[in-house]
Design a protein around this nucleic acid. Structure first.
Lengths: 200, 200
DNA sequence: TTGCTATCCGGAGGCACCCTCCGTATATTG
DNA sequence: CAATATACGGAGGGTGCCTCCGGATAGCAA
């Protein structure tokens, strides 16, 4: 039985390894952006000017690669979320953030499917920090809205996020993609508001 | 130049061909139901006890097979839609139909992705009849709701359908799948109602 | 500098799937 | 029953997935 030791890394990572990793992420952005989440990983490797073996060493599976790709975008969104301020209309604040989100998504429609992979339960772990920053920010907003009687109860940050991505995903690309997504999203957000007492 | 003739079929179709086609559809239901829309078509052929060539002769591509599979379910939904009656609350009627739809979807979650393929613009053609029966029914409902001032304008049947499928699709399977989908759907439907004059 | 070796690279290889093509088998018809 | 239009099945060529390992090379020590 070895000690389950706190492995002291013997050396610093090799320069070529770092370089290749970077190239792979960059290539993945391009290839996955165009080809969608099912794009060939071999194509990614080719584009990065690297052997397929190298790709798989750095990213054991498709998901790992996606994680690497989305890490930065996610950070961006998390920053945005942190700056959210409900003011007198939490739903409106939410709307602003979601719209920004949709806009950002639009630039990488091809990765939408990838995103849905990333949002899987098991994979949340690796994104723990940004994920929870976002979730916290949105939940804070929602809670405040509920407290003020402006937002209906029982809706979580996750609900809102998933709905947004679902709408982005469902709408097929084209001319009016963005307009349509935002329209449907706004309908959902309206439903999020506390209904007046008329409601059945 | 031949006459662009009204080809008189020389013979009636062979019995084995019909049988195989039926087996293939049945096999497809099972395999696609479990394996999702990316399941192997070769697996479908194997399950149907038929060569891969036979599958491709009957269904030139994946989509054609999905069409065949969904034809019947779609008819079912269309029948249901035809019987829709807005009464005094169109949104409620819509809600009933959509809930039934979700329930039906639940029994074949694996085919959800397939459905999204089927709902593609180009493929609408082959479903012209059922598709438009459904669309007509829903649009009738929506129009009536708008006329009565109970439903917001600018929302089409397609919007509603896509949103429903999006929500079904986004929510990962599990314990609370159905409850969650219905909850989010209801929020959307609430948003669909005409807002009272309070609105931002 | 030089040599050692941990680390990393690249792509061949085995497997699965996609879809096409065509020689063979058979249901239908007269 | 024979003739033949139809349909069958699977081999084959292409692509992608992922693993594995012989060879290359960067970092380190002397």
């Amino acid at each position: 039985m070895e000690r389950a030791a706190v492995e002291t890394p013997k050396r610093k990572p090799r320069a070529d390894a770092l370089r290749n990793r970077e190239n792979l992420i960059e290539a993945a952005k391009e290839v996955l952006g165009k080809g969608g989440p099912d794009a060939s990983l071999e194509a990614v490797a080719r584009r990065a000017g690297v052997g397929i073996g190298t790709l798989y060493r750095h990213f054991p599976d498709r998901e790992a690669l996606f994680h690497a790709v989305f890490g930065r975008e996610l950070t961006q969104l998390a920053d945005m979320a942190d700056r959210l301020d409900g003011g007198s209309d939490e739903v409106e604040a939410l709307r602003v953030w979601l719209h920004a989100n949709v806009a950002l998504v639009e630039t990488k429609r091809g990765m939408l499917g990838a995103l849905s992979i990333v949002l899987t339960e098991e994979s949340k772990q690796s994104f723990a920090e940004q994920s929870s920053r976002i979730a916290d920010a949105l939940n804070r907003l929602l809670a405040s809205g509920v407290a003020e009687g402006r937002v209906r109860e029982g809706v979580s940050a996750e609900d809102v996020m998933q709905t947004m991505y679902a709408l982005c995903y469902a709408r097929s690309p084209g001319e009016s993609w963005r307009r349509d997504v935002l329209r449907l999203l706004d309908i959902f957000l309206d439903g999020l508001r506390q209904r007046s007492a008329t409601g059945r």
